[in-house]
Amino acid sequence: MISIAPDRSLFADESALQAVRYLVGVDGGGTGTRLRLSDLDGRLLGQGEAGPSALGQGVDQAWRHIEQALQQAAEQAGLAGPQGLRHAECALAAGLSGANLPAACSEFLASQPGYAAVIVVNDGYTTVLGAHGGQPGAVVASGTGAVGEVLRRDGSTDCISGWGWITGDEGSGAWLGLKAIRHAQQALDGRAVPGPLAFAVWDLTGRSRESVLAWCAAAGQHGFAQLAPLVFMAADKGDAVAQRFVDEAVTELEALARALDPQSELPLALAGSIAKRLESKFSGNIRARCVEPQGDSADGALHLVRSALNAKMGSR
Rank of each mutant, 00 (worst) to 15 (best):
P82R: 12
Q83K: 08
Q83Y: 05
Q83I: 01
Q83W: 13
G84I: 01
L85F: 04
R86H: 12
R86Q: 04
H87T: 06
H87N: 09
A88W: 00
E89K: 02
C90H: 00
C90I: 04
C90K: 00
L92S: 04
L92P: 05
L92K: 08
G95S: 10
L96A: 15
G98C: 11
G98R: 11
G98D: 03
A99G: 01
N100S: 15
N100G: 14
L101P: 02
L101T: 15
L101M: 12
P102R: 07
A104R: 15
A104E: 11
A104Q: 14
C105W: 05
S106Q: 14
E107F: 01
E107T: 08
E107N: 11
F108I: 08
L109I: 08
S111A: 15
Q112A: 09
P113N: 03
G114R: 13
Y115A: 02
Y115P: 05
A116R: 06
A117V: 07
A117P: 06
V118D: 01
I119N: 00
I119C: 07
V120P: 00
V120F: 02
N122E: 13
D123R: 01
G124D: 01
G124V: 09
Y125P: 09
T126S: 03
T126N: 09
T126Y: 05
T127N: 11
T127C: 13
V128H: 00
V128S: 00
L129Q: 04
L129V: 10
L129D: 00
G130A: 08
G130K: 00
A131N: 06
A131Q: 03
A131V: 09
H132F: 08
G133F: 03
G134K: 04
Q135A: 15
P136F: 09
P136H: 10
V139L: 01
V139S: 02
V139Q: 00
A141T: 01
T144Q: 11
T144W: 12
G148M: 03
E149H: 13
E149G: 02
V150M: 04
L151M: 10
L151G: 06
R153V: 15
D154R: 12
G155R: 14
G155V: 11
T157W: 12
D158G: 15
D158L: 13
C159Q: 14
C159Y: 00
S161G: 15
G162P: 10
W163Q: 14
W163V: 09
G164V: 05
W165T: 07
I166F: 12
I166M: 12
T167D: 04
T167P: 07
D169T: 13
D169G: 08
G171P: 01
G171F: 05
G173F: 03
G173H: 02
G173R: 04
G173D: 08
W175S: 04
L176Q: 06
L178N: 03
L178R: 13
A180D: 12
I181R: 05
A184G: 09
Q186G: 14
Q186E: 14
A187Q: 01
A187M: 01
L188C: 13
